[in-house]
Design a protein around this nucleic acid. Sequence first.
DNA 1: CAGAATCCGGCACGATACTG
DNA 2: CAGTATCGTGCCGGATTCTG
Lengths: 129, 129
Amino acid sequence: MNNETTLVCSPVSEKPHCGAADHRERVMGIRDAIDVLSGKWKIEIIGALLFGGRMRFMDVMREVPGIAAKMLSKELHDLEAHQLVKRTVMDTKPITVEYEITPYGKSLEEVIITIANWGLSHRKKIMKG
Amino acid sequence: MNNETTLVCSPVSEKPHCGAADHRERVMGIRDAIDVLSGKWKIEIIGALLFGGRMRFMDVMREVPGIAAKMLSKELHDLEAHQLVKRTVMDTKPITVEYEITPYGKSLEEVIITIANWGLSHRKKIMKG
DNA sequence: CAGAATCCGGCACGATACTG
DNA sequence: CAGTATCGTGCCGGATTCTG
């Protein structure tokens, strides 16, 4: 995963007259999205921040059960590099840091909700057997 | 990844009267969805099958640029185990196999489209910046 | 053509300990 | 509290070869 905000695929070389077979574009879109959201934790973290609002490191840990501090730290930095999350350091007595979704990160809300809803219905289906 | 169709999280223990803090459920949903869709390729494969319709192994390979045969085979089996994809063996002279999205797999269409669209707009943003 | 088998490197992820 | 540092491991995923 690059720190730089690059694209996975090279831009569309040519698209003479937008005809059929533009799934190619969709595939590229999927690839770019996966690139940003890859891994076991990113989507959960964004979801937590999205629905929990601005919160501190430890709060995020609580909202994302099972994640290790190192992972959370790394993923948050990745998300910050992609401008999806904003980090704010408060100089209180013991230093506190707050994280929140950026306006751009908000654009992921629909994606997250859609995924969460599907997961929930999938869970119900599995539980019924 | 389990072969069995299990859930990552244990079911909701109690939810007295659906009050606040039900992001917990959403987080569980996200986790279940990630579990099914994890990895670098699954979403792309589903997308290809969703928009490309029933097709053969080699066609899927063409639709998912860069994937190795082993990966594609493995991912397709995973998806089949989760009942998202159906495999059909035709006994032609050189054996051919066809893959297609199941009705249940269709339920992922909204998810995939949402992701693809976000990825596309993200791509545009990055290219400008 | 559709894949199974094998080999292999890297990194995603985890556990623990330490710091300001 | 909010992290870094360090160490270890599994498995993800790629390349290649073999089969029916």
